[in-house]
C-alpha cells in the first residue's frame, strides 16, 4: 500500500497541558501545589515532602488538574 508523499507544513502542534498536584498538609491543613510527578494520584499519602508552612512531612494529594488561564479584564 502506498504512503502519501507530501510532507506536512510547519504548523505547530497543540501543547500538551501540564497538570498541578495539590497537597494538603496533614499537620496544619494548609494546601499547596507543585507540578505533577509520576506516581502521584488523588488521595495518595505523601511522606517525603515538607510542608512549606509547618515543615510537616505527611500530606495528602487532594486534587490533580490543569489550571485554567485567568482571562485579563
Amino acid at each position: 500500500m502506498s504512503e502519501p508523499s507530501i510532507m506536512m507544513g510547519g504548523r505547530s502542534r497543540e501543547r500538551t497541558p501540564e497538570p498541578l498536584t495539590f497537597l494538603k498538609c496533614l499537620s496544619c491543613g494548609v494546601e499547596n501545589s507543585r507540578p505533577f510527578k509520576e506516581n502521584d494520584y488523588v488521595l495518595k499519602i505523601v511522606e517525603d515532602e515538607k510542608c512549606p508552612k509547618c515543615g510537616g512531612t505527611r500530606s495528602k494529594i487532594v486534587n490533580i488538574y490543569v489550571p485554567e488561564k485567568k482571562e485579563s479584564k
Binding site: P17, P19, N63, I64, Y65, V66, P67, E68
Partner: peptide
C-alpha cells in the same frame, strides 16, 4: 480523554 481541567475538578 486529556488531563483533567480545573473547571471539571
Amino acid at each position: 480523554i486529556t488531563p483533567m481541567r480545573e473547571s471539571i475538578a
